[in-house]
Nucleic acid binder design. Structure first.
Lengths: 156, 156
DNA sequence: TATTGTTATACTCTATAACTATA
DNA sequence: TATAGTTATAGAGTATAACAATA
């Protein structure tokens, strides 16, 4: 609709390739920062991201957490083991369907969530942008995020 | 200079946090695509990215490759092992300093580089953006990339 | 039979430490 | 002694396959 595609295809492709490369680079830097900060909280990156997905008010079956994390069920076991050892999460058998184990966030887990989410939303790397630039970037990234892969974006 | 910082700090922080989260999400999707495509070339992601960094015209010491990949020397050994087994790279002792082993890209390696770089620059996820949006995104990401961490961005 | 969570297993990526051969 | 590459080892993330309990 509003796509003014005026660039010749080869130039467009070259430009896009450069943007993708720089995006990957920036994302790597962001992840590097975050992983270090999460480690400082005593959590591995994957465990921290799992905790981030849990809702204290609505215990989630492990199966659903796996889906949200885009990983196999079998991995969630070890992740939740870590969170449980740290006293941040409890497993509770679902009375309605005893096959399910729902993940309950403890009080300590709630406090940890606050810290984890502060890290996951840490925007040091965006400090160089003005407010308008930040807003523009947000719009563009959201547009990619929504329309980037219109078809089979369910699981992958 | 051109930073019109008019947003109240809390709102700015909330906005930035959202942008960072969406950026991370998009980057994850990009990496997911790429890793699958690199696997289809018979290369692990790390090996492919190592090959990408090599220059057929200027053999690189393994030490320098490690620096470019931001990883330890010891990892490069296994990476180059894979590339050598695949016939894409050769190790050659540097005559001037026999401690060094420079990495020579073979003819097959050159052809593989073309394919790898096509994947690494694959911009399917940006197809939803118009040319002007793409250019804007490129500028913003470059600005982050350069000014994001002004101080200690050497190794980390 | 089908599904959930678990276990066992394997592969990849990455880091540290110790070893070797050079310098 | 210092550096380059290697090896050994370990931890983290993720995947597949098989298993027990439950539906």
């Amino acid at each position: 609709m509003a796509e003014t595609t005026s660039l010749p295809a080869p130039e467009r492709a070259a430009l896009a390739a450069g943007v993708v490369r720089r995006l990957s680079h920036v994302a790597r830097a962001i992840r590097h920062h975050m992983d270090a900060d999460l480690a400082a909280l005593g959590l591995t990156p994957a465990a921290a991201r799992a905790l981030d997905r849990l809702d204290p008010d609505r215990p989630l079956p492990a199966r659903d957490l796996a889906e949200q994390l885009n990983c196999d069920r079998s991995n969630v076991t070890a992740l939740v083991d870590k969170l449980e050892e740290a006293g941040l999460v409890c497993r509770r058998a679902d009375p309605a369907d005893r096959r399910l184990k729902t993940l309950v966030v403890t009080d300590a887990g709630r406090r940890a969530q606050v810290r984890v989410r502060r890290v996951l939303g840490d925007s040091r790397l965006l400090d160089g942008l003005g407010d308008d630039e930040l807003a523009t970037l947000g719009d563009l990234v959201e547009k990619i995020s929504n329309g980037g892969c219109p078809e089979d974006c369910g699981g992958s």
